[in-house]
Design a binder for these strands. Sequence first.
DNA 1: AAATGAACCTGTTTGC
DNA 2: TGCAAACAGGTTCATT
Length: 273
Amino acid sequence: MPELPEIESLRQKLAPKLKNAVLSKLVFRRADLRAPLPKDAPKRLCDKRITSITRRSKYLLINFENAPTLVVHLGMSGRFFFAPKQLPLDAHDHVLIDFKDGRHMRLRDPRRFGMLFLCDPAKQAAHPRFKDLGPEPLEAEFSGSYLLSCCKRAQTPIKSLLMNAHRVVGVGNIYASEALFLSGIRPTRMAARVTAAEADTLCANIKRVLTRSIAAGGTSFRDYVDAEQKPGLYAVNLNVYGRAGRPCPRCATTIKRVTQTGRSSFYCPACQK
DNA sequence: AAATGAACCTGTTTGC
DNA sequence: TGCAAACAGGTTCATT
């Protein structure tokens, strides 16, 4: 389900519900998730109280009192939701979580690109999965001048640069195409040929599309569901993503699709140079 | 160092 | 209709 807005929306919804909840049971139904938890993980987290839910990139961090942080990544197809305990098990319900107050959550992920791992909260930034990540796109550190400095020394198309988590995290395939459309820049343009003014515009548009989508509740995915398994509202208006062959909403030119590093990019050949 | 392509999986959509 | 190929939101690994 995830791009960054979906994860951030989920975080915002989960935070008040899970704060102060005490974990009573953690069950793994299969051992071959991408980052297998240590065998003693249930023991280390049981009877521990959740203090907060935070986010880094597309990772959801469940922070406990006097216990390691449980980090959840939903990959491409993960869902993390409350359910009645007696809900019949789906073949892809990989992780079951019970709380002392009787509530029950599940991690369901058919493609199994998602992962869970434990992380020492005191050494979070140094964790192998976090230490090489670029800035958060919605923080001030991600600015037009920062983006420009990345572009200057890059030898890759701008779309590939935006998707590179070493440069900036959380800009996924949908919002990379959308931000480039709003900025009038083709995804195939070499990053080094992006001007300072364009870098400013692009940075602002990345923040704009992400912020707008978070405000709408994270709604861009057809199989997105929130923590209560409610589908998204599809309130975010996508201009080019997934619209190859259809008219550009601005100029009616036919939108094109190209493949870059194995991913689809969409653009208007007239509006984007 | 930086960039590319393949790999990890299953489910759904598209095209013949 | 049926079947196979193409495609899907992300990250990571090996190879240049």
